[in-house]
Design a protein around this nucleic acid. Structure first.
Lengths: 128, 128
DNA sequence: TTGCGTTGTGTTTTAATATGCATATCGTGA
DNA sequence: TCACGATATGCATATTAAAACACAACGCAA
């Protein structure tokens, strides 16, 4: 049995919300999972270790990162096969900028939507 | 070949975002599709007509609405079989409140995240 | 030169969702 | 009382995304 992963941003309300970014053609750029993987790559220097912790398959994460790079038009990670450790994956400086931008975005979202959520809930509550 | 439906909220940026609400246990309450269906029910008085326009199967929409009602704890639509037209589906007043609250939420999102998006994009642009 | 551990990638399997189909139920109006 | 058209719902099929699997490729270190 696989544990169910949920990348929602939990709020102090009855409801969740999720946000993710994609290109206008629908290609995924970054979401909570990919963000966590990138953070762990930065920490561990290994994609394999990162996906294990996040609980997503290596195959999928590898493909997702490749897709994201293609659509961004630049590399966010640099990978190496072989060597003492078997190989490594590290963030490029652009990759670091990406996660910083994503963090800032999430922070702004958290702040700015709080009121919207509170109001939604208040309106829904009137229905009880 | 089925046409791919996308319930993203398109912005004047390179990116999209999607928002949807669920209970904290992950049960879907409302998203863009369900919102559109409810609007069309209000307009047409028919679930069948609504799902046709939105492009989702009657079977699914019917089940989703039922689930949403179970988790909200009240009815958002009232349905009738038989009669001149074969049957009808209309919104309850609580259903109307729900879509109003959802509209207000989306509006607030649109307003409040605009700045966050702009800043994200500005940061990402530095990467080019 | 062999083994190790990780990246790289196609193929197969599995699981989750949605669709499609079949058929019952109902209420009006002809 | 019969046909119509929409709702109601189980079930079988199809679709899709993800996971699992299986190896190849690589480079260091013993």
């Amino acid at each position: 049995m696989k544990k169910k992963k949920d990348s929602s941003r939990y709020k102090n309300y009855l409801f969740n919300y999720k946000v993710w970014l994609s290109t206008i053609t629908g290609q995924g750029i970054i979401d909570e999972d990919k963000y966590r993987i990138l953070k762990l790559i930065k920490e561990k220097g290994s994609l394999k270790a990162a996906v294990k912790k996040v609980g997503v398959s290596y195959r999928k994460a590898w493909g997702d990162l490749k897709t994201a790079e293609e659509h961004l038009g630049y590399q966010i990670i640099t990978k190496q096969r072989g060597g003492k450790e078997g190989g490594t994956t590290v963030l490029t400086s652009k990759g670091e900028k990406l996660i910083e931008a994503y963090e800032a975005l999430q922070e702004k979202f958290d702040d700015s939507v709080e009121e919207a959520f509170a109001e939604f809930q208040r309106k829904i509550k009137e229905n009880q």
